[in-house]
Design a binder for these strands. Structure first.
Length: 397
RNA sequence: GCGUCGGUGGCGGAGUGGUCAAUCGCACUUGACUGUAAAUCAAGCGCCUUCGGGCUUCGUUGGUUCGAAUCCAACCCGGCGCACCA
């Protein structure tokens, strides 16, 4: 079983200090109490809840995962809780709207891809993975009533995201109050010593403590992370497209990293990498572009390896610094129907109208000759058409 | 259930019978500028077009009208209030 493979528990004060400070927003009840617990030499159970909705994990998701890795390295037991039951109820903490219900088979599929992606960061052979349907679906109304009695309605509605929705006249389902109850009971069920979460998860993570206490357990320590911004400096969100996914292709990952705002580079270094903080500070002394290059390089290295990182950087410099054709240009076959039609068919542009706009903007040109195109022109086969900064199309056959 | 207000483009939010493909802000795209950016400035931002224009959109379905996002009806969805007098 799991515990056989775990290394002995380490109480290395330096590692513990790093663990307690890097990217950490708050520890409840306190940093000192958590330090004491870690120094006790006892093997601890570290809980992280996984919401099994999406198939891509992004750099924001890696913040707790990297921290779990640190715990793993100290010999502690990481407990993943797949929220297959909570996922069905629906989370509210980082949403301004309700989540759709998930089917059981969707949850199962998502779990598989999730574990695969996580394996880059964590030693997945040492994980304890649990589904909260194991225990949550066995509770009855009496249990739930007792759990619910631990919290007051005002606790719930004074939460920021609920308050906002209420004030905006949006609907808040009663169903949603169940979420923190469930997440809190998860901690009881797995006897968690520590739970991790983003600071936006504060309420939900905290919910475990009174429930554990009521069950005669020692309340878990809560380790909350600084929220990592998206690449545009705003709140990270998939729908805004300001996220970097860990399974992004090397060139895409590099490019996204390079287009992030200067102001968020340090936070990415701290929370999404394990580059030593002293090294990060020396990077930050460099020209912002160079600091960002180092970050982009490191991120691609983490998820795709050194060789891919070097290649992605070379490709980036070739494309954007020197204006040449990148390796991954799209190949489009153009026949009698003409270039415009072919580009629409290939999905490079969404409509003829859009393509015409781009043409009139002067955004479409031939890389080899730097000639700007018009609606009728068709460059020779083998040449490459560049649309704006990011779209490259090699004309074939 | 009753009353009342509301459902508009990715989001927020104008518009309340023609001049509305629909003000504006955000996001996005493109050009200039750059450090790859950001900021700034400029243009664009439903679809088709022989660039004259044409076509389909404003919760759904019907209706009134020469003409509807705008009026009417039914239905669906949401907010708020009432109903409980404890």
């Amino acid at each position: 079983m799991f515990w056989n493979k775990l290394p002995p528990v380490s109480t290395d004060p330096e590692k513990i200090d790093a663990l307690l400070s890097r990217g950490v927003a708050e520890v409840i009840p306190s940093v000192d109490s958590l330090r004491a617990l870690l120094m006790s030499g006892k093997r601890l159970r570290i809980k992280l809840g996984i919401d099994p909705t999406g198939s891509h994990i992004h750099l924001g998701n890696t913040v707790p995962l990297l921290k779990l890795r640190d715990f793993q390295d100290l010999g502690h037991q990481v407990v993943f809780i797949i929220g297959d039951a909570t996922g069905v109820i629906g989370d509210t903490s980082d949403k301004d709207a309700e989540r759709p219900m998930l089917t059981e088979s969707a949850v199962a599929d998502n779990l598989k891809t999730f574990v695969r992606q996580v394996s880059v960061i964590l030693d997945t052979t040492l994980l304890e993975v649990r589904k909260n349907s194991e225990w949550l679906l066995k509770l009855n109304y009496r249990d739930i009533g007792e759990h619910a009695d631990v919290f007051s309605v005002s606790d719930f509605i004074s939460r920021d995201n609920i308050r906002r929705r209420l004030d905006a006249g949006k609907r808040v389902s009663l169903r949603e109050v169940l979420y923190p109850l469930m997440q809190g009971y998860d901690s009881v069920a797995v006897r968690a010593d520590i739970e991790l979460g983003g600071s936006d998860q504060r309420f939900n993570v905290l919910a475990g403590r009174p429930l554990q206490e009521k069950s005669g357990q020692r309340p878990q320590q809560c380790l909350l992370f600084e929220l990592m911004p998206g690449t545009d400096g705003e709140k990270m969100s998939k729908s805004r497209g300001n996220v970097i996914n860990v399974d992004d292709a090397p060139t895409a990952m590099f490019g996204k990293a390079m287009s992030m705002r200067d102001s968020v580079v340090r936070q990415f270094f701290i929370s999404a990498t394990r580059v030593p903080l002293a090294t990060v500070e020396t990077y930050m002394q460099l020209h912002p572009k160079d600091a960002k290059l180092a970050l982009a390089r490191e991120l691609v290295r983490m998820y795709h390896g050194e060789a891919a990182a070097a290649a992605a950087q070379a490709d980036f410099e070739k494309t954007f610094v020197r204006g040449e054709v990148p390796e991954d240009a799209v190949e489009v076959r153009v026949g009698a129907e003409g270039l415009m039609q072919a580009l629409v068919a290939a999905g490079v542009v969404t409509s003829k109208t859009e393509y015409r706009r781009l043409l009139s903007d002067g955004a479409v040109r031939v890389v080899e000759t730097d000639e700007k195109l018009n609606e009728r022109s068709l460059p020779p086969y083998g040449h490459t058409v560049r649309i704006g900064n990011h779209r490259f199309v090699r004309i074939s056959k």
